[in-house]
Structure formats: structure tokens, C-alpha cells
Amino acid sequence: MTRMRRWLPGLLLVAPSIAAIAVFVYGMLGWNFRLAMTDQHDEVSEGKFVGLENFTGIWDQPRWSISVNHAIVFTVVFVGGALLLGWLLAFLMEKGLRGEGTFRAIYLFPMAISFVATGVVWRWLMNSGTGERAVGLNRLFDVVGLEFLQWRWFRDQDWGMAAMAIPAIWQMSGYVMALFLAGFRGVPEELREAARVDGCTEWKVYRHIVLPMLRPVTLSALIILGHISLKAFDLIVAVSGKQIITDVPAVFMWVAVFDSHDPAKGATIAAYIVIAVSVFVIPYLVWSLRKERRS
């Protein structure tokens, strides 16, 4: 009785969330994978089990390889850009900028906006009109005499997805800055001073003391940004809608389910997105579990 008293209240507390997660996360995930392995290519028929046929077949579709390429370009530019910019901002703050609190708030503000709102604003900013018809950023370039910088933004066939990453960088770099700032502050002043006493230049202090200590923060930031990027949907739909020129797996999934009425294909794409995200998340979980055990 006393033993039960000890664990039962705790279990009761977490039971609702365990049940909810079991049903709505893992149950649904399982259901999705099961659906992806059937040939239920319309809403009314009963699907038969076909194994991994959908998973291999989708690579024959030209649209799929385009959307995977787009997702890769978007992820590289977005994650790289947000990490670099966030690091740079944090570095400047750390150097003891006057009015740091104000700047911090300014850089963090974009986080408070939804991707949809960001997308609507940037759709206008990244208008592809040039010359006399330029509006948005192209117009700005025109006014300040940087006409050569005008380009078609997300409508550019080769680098359009890099342009699409700009609003995402704008929105998330403040958050990365906050992460890095906390990381910088976590480096004990004594360590730096010891290095300086040993004759390190300021550059070397950063190279050998601060940067290695920022590794865990960088990893967390990479994982947070990476999974946002692979699931990107709202921003892209708000900027350009469901067009091939900016197609990514999540948008393709929506089109497969709601326009093509092909549940199995939609589930296959969803499964690939989950797999891609877990490539990011699982190593992180393993790493943090190990770290916890060590400490």
C-alpha cells in the first residue's frame, strides 16, 4: 500500500499524456506507415499490402526528385545562414555592445511572427519584377543604385529555393543568436583569462577555448533548425503557393492527399519526411542520453 502510494500519483499525473502520445503520435505514425505500404490510391478503395513498392516507385516521378533537391538546397542555405548570422549577432553582443537588451529584443522579435505572416510579407518583398516594374527589394536595389543585384528571387529556376530560405533565416537567426549568447555566457571568464595569460591572442582564445565549448549549443541549434527546415510547408505555401518551381516534399504531400486524392502516395511522402527528420533527431537523442548517463 505504501509502495503503491509512492508511484501511483506520479503515474496518474503522466497517464493522460502517455495515452495521448501513444494514440496521437505513435499510433498515427504507425497508421501512416501501414497506409504507405498499401496500394490505396483513392479514397474509396480498400488498399492491399504492397510492401515498399510506393517507397521505391516515387523516385521515378520527376516531381519527387525536384522537390527533394529543393528541400536540400533550402535546408543547406537556411541552416547554414541562420547558424552563421545567429553566431555573428551573438558574437557582437558578447563583445559588450551598448544597449544590448534592446538589440536582443529586436533580433528576437521575428520569432514571435508566424511563418505564414512572414511569408505574406516576403512574397511582396521578393517580387520578381525588374527594371521599371520592380517592387519590393528589387525596387530598393534600383533606388540605391544596385540594379545588378536585382533577380527573380524564388522564381529563379536554379537558386529559387535559396531565396526562399531568406525569410526563414530572417525569422530564426534571432533565436539562434539567443542560443549562442547563452553558450558564450557559459564559457567561464577564468578559462579565457588563463589562456590570455598563457599568451593566446584574442583570435586564438575564440578558436581554441570558446568555439569548442559552443559545440553542444551548435548541435542543438542544428537539430532545431534542421527539423523545421525539412518540414517546411507554411512559409513556402504563403510565399508561392503550390507551384512546382518551389515544390518541397511537404507541399507535394498536401497535393497528393487533397488534390490527387491519393492517400498512399501522401502517406509515403509523409513517411519520408519523418525518416529525414529522424536522421537529424535520433543521433541527438542518443548523444544527449549518453551525456546524461555520464554525468
Binding site: I66, I244, I245
Partner: peptide, 15 residues
């Protein structure tokens, strides 16, 4: 479904 396939073909053709 057919309309979506046509849209897809046109989008790919534009590229």
C-alpha cells in the same frame, strides 16, 4: 486527380 497530374506536367514543362 487528372487535373492535378496535368498541373504537374505543365509545371515541369515550364522548367
Amino acid at each position: 486527380a487528372w487535373r492535378t497530374a496535368i498541373n504537374e506536367a505543365v509545371g515541369l514543362f515550364q522548367q
